[in-house]
Design a protein around this nucleic acid. Structure first.
Lengths: 196, 196
DNA sequence: ATAATTTAGGAACGAATGCTCCAGATTTAA
DNA sequence: TTAAATCTGGAGCATTCGTTCCTAAATTAT
């Protein structure tokens, strides 16, 4: 088709998306303007619309980037399993650390409450993220029940759900009270309740 | 100062604020425009700025209205205490019902994640709401511990916090999965864990 | 260099944003 | 009825919104 070739791209899309993610993370979807976004990404308006699509598509890319990053680190975090219960504990503690130390609260939670109800595409991504964590955790819990490290007679599915849904409340608590020990105490209680 | 008096108002501010609240509830703070709001309230632009202030002040009034309404119904709900544990159970179940049946998820939670981090006035109101529920619940829990209806040896403060923070996660779960039984199972588990 | 191709800069679009202002309608007390 | 005081409809303010478009610069193979 073309005998003479020209400039074959490369601006770093991954980097740009991650910069955009920071803006959405801080200001929310509706609170972030396209000017905020292009400024943070360091690209011009035309480059933005040529390469990333539009605001909504960029947001999709941003939360995908966010969830994929989390999946990576969660997978790494839970790799070396001595005892499944210890792994669960580690997971809970790392969540507590993130909640009480990161400047913004979890982007997927923020997004869930801001736009997920009316935005199917967003909802699918968040659901997938949720199910990834679920699948990661249910393996550990099943094994922990098997090994009688966990005392509960209840089904593993429910227990997995139960643990995952703690984190959201802890995020809210930390926004309101900014009190680390409150979160830690709840986490300790959770582990104690679960443990044999 | 004025010997001849004129028209002394009345338009129904409470009603107007409650209409505005519905808009904020559905669209969020940043997602709601002043035209959305005046249209829903059925008042003109000038009436809006003369009587309600501006968008932010209206939002403050709206979430105040929301939290005050909830305080009323929570107080009524927890009035007839046969056993404190039963009262707690009732409170949890009514929360589950609200989560799984109302069209929008809790306005204070949405607001917490959308704007509370950067808005002190909003944060104060949400914190007050949270502490109201806290004070309502800790009385019941203390009494339940006293009467040995609750098995836990832990302090009542932590346990109150723990219970309150369940609801946020359940809201998120319901947005993502729209599965009532999932929420009910977690609620049942919570009660079972607490009960003697 | 030349031509092909893709980037980026920046002006500017129409629409929507939060908000103001004023003329006129409405209600009050005298 | 009259005049003072208050309320309201609606035009319209400046700004920002998301988005488009055109031109010029940059990079490539020939």
């Amino acid at each position: 088709m073309h005998s003479i070739m020209a400039r074959n791209v490369e601006f770093d899309e991954k980097l740009a998306v991650s910069k955009a993610m920071d803006v959405f993370w801080k200001k929310g979807y509706n609170g972030a303007s396209t000017r905020d976004l292009t400024e943070a990404m360091g690209i011009s308006n035309s480059s933005f619309y040529n390469t990333l699509g539009d605001k909504h598509q960029l947001f999709i890319k941003a939360i995908k980037y966010y969830t994929e990053s989390r999946m990576d680190s969660a997978t790494k975090l839970l790799q070396p399993i001595k005892s499944p219960l210890k792994a669960i504990e580690k997971f809970v503690n790392s969540s507590v650390y993130a909640i009480t130390n990161e400047p913004n609260s979890c982007l997927t939670i923020k997004t869930t409450f801001e736009v997920a109800i009316g935005d199917e595409a967003v909802q699918r991504i968040i659901k997938a993220d949720n199910e990834f964590t679920y699948n990661l955790l249910i393996g550990l819990i099943s094994k922990a029940i098997e090994l009688k490290e966990i005392r509960v007679s209840d089904d593993a599915e429910m227990l997995t759900d139960y643990i995952i849904n703690q984190f959201t409340g802890w995020h809210e608590s930390f926004i309101i009270h900014k009190d680390k020990t409150r979160i830690r105490k709840m986490a300790e209680f959770l582990i104690r309740q679960i443990s044999q």
